[in-house]
Design a protein around this nucleic acid. Structure first.
Lengths: 247, 247
DNA sequence: ACTCCCCTTCCGCATTCCGAAAGGAGCTGG
DNA sequence: CCAGCTCCTTTCGGAATGCGGAAGGGGAGT
């Protein structure tokens, strides 16, 4: 029985598993039963149950009368506390930007190797961008993604690209590491990033990084190419910079 | 060696400890070093380190260049996802209420045996109520607290009161279980709760429960007794009910 | 350069957690 | 009304897993 050949394992199994369950619930977006969670997480039922019991007892999970589990109030507190350092300013920024640009705005951060949307205010217009809340996307094909990468050293950008690859989403998606590095360098120079139908046809986004934040953070404005025209991009970028810098 | 005499063992030690560390960080409100966390949590340094490594690897914690730990982006996501079911409506409710009443508004939930504020929009007025974000308070002496308790069966209210006691904050604080039950019954009848200088002299609050929410939730308006007069209370209460019911 | 402090890594012991299987509880269909 | 189902909960022996004392770096202050 190979006790464990190699590897600098400095991780706690039960903890990783339990946190995996939390993420599972977050991604599902709906309450899940014990057996659902167990099979989704690839764990024995009884192990899962024990963990859920612990999480429930501490308030990180909440068990509905129908025995299903959903994310609990304590996580709300933790999430809020995690956002505190950047201030409760973010929602205000987004509202302001929606007012001044008329388009949907997002705030996103880098979580693992993925871009994670943490806040959103939608445009009032009928045709609008609207990502699912707390959805993840990839860094190389979004404006926020490139803005976030610009906060990292090139070496990190390269290793991240190696890990996740650069899958094509449209014909304009950046598909080489060099291209990505160049794009990121552009962001550092100009102070803003653009996604020109690189993630989805018909959508154009502008984003700026928020360097002062204690963790990587970026804010973006996105809308249909018909309204967010190339000519408008610089104006939107400086509006973004203005709002974010007013912190 | 007593392996552990009695008790319902359905808890995972390492998990509880790790989550305790998270709460510790949330309560501290500032980045903490390894040794600080270890001693605050009453754990050996190396155990703590292993857990922090796991938490950091998964993105639930973020380690700054100076080696200190702060809450990470993944927690932002979890917190947000936990709030989703009540909709991103809550901030909107609060803004609306601040606009129509001119006073500070809060949303709170029941976390363990404590009331936990999860969102706040402050009044624009110079003299205003302003709780620290994500602070906890006790159920028996706040309007939100009583509103939250009204969502629970009486038996739960009693056992909660037994666990945490009913410490006096002012001369008007409810100090008997009977008094609390009566107050809670009133809330169920009238649909709203009032805190009449029961937590702090000079402050009066009105709160309504949000029964549709997937976990206990209540929204309150609070301000100085000079502006939030007894005569105004019914109007504020119906305004609260209107906004919350418009969900 | 020396010292102190804090973070990181190592490694043997046994505590702690794991997970198959048995024991309820609730629901559906016959 | 009962049989059969599914899903949740609890038990229990085995051992893998995490625990924590102690030693090994690295950086800052003196």
């Amino acid at each position: 029985m190979p006790p464990r050949a190699a590897g600098g394992h400095t991780r706690v199994q039960s903890l990783d598993r339990a946190l995996g369950l939390l993420d599972l619930l977050a991604d599902a977006g709906r309450p899940l039963g014990l057996s659902e969670l167990a099979s989704a997480g690839g764990l024995p039922v009884s192990t899962t149950h024990r963990m859920l019991a612990s999480l429930t007892a501490s308030g990180h999970l909440h068990q509905a009368p129908d025995r299903r589990y959903r994310l609990g109030p304590r996580l709300v507190a933790l999430g809020g506390a995690a956002m505190l350092p950047v201030g409760p300013d973010v929602p205000a920024w987004l509202s302001q930007l929606v007012a001044s640009t008329g388009e949907t705005t997002n705030a996103a951060t880098l979580c693992g190797d993925a871009v994670l949307f943490v806040a959103q205010v939608q445009s009032a217009q009928a045709m609008r961008t609207s990502t699912e809340d707390y959805r993840r996307t990839l860094p190389h094909c979004s404006a926020v993604g490139k803005a976030l990468l610009s906060l990292l050293p090139d070496s990190e950008v390269v290793s991240l690209a190696d890990r996740v690859g650069l899958p094509r989403r449209t014909s304009r998606t950046i598909d080489s590491v060099e291209g990505l590095l160049w794009a990121v360098a552009q962001v550092r120079l100009s102070g803003y990033a653009v996604d020109d139908e690189e993630e989805e046809y018909g959508a154009r986004c502008v984003a700026v990084p928020v360097p002062a934040a204690p963790f990587p953070l970026a804010v973006s404005v996105s809308g249909p190419t018909s309204r967010v025209t190339p000519e408008r991009v610089p104006a939107i970028a400086s509006e973004l910079a203005r709002v974010v810098r007013a912190a």
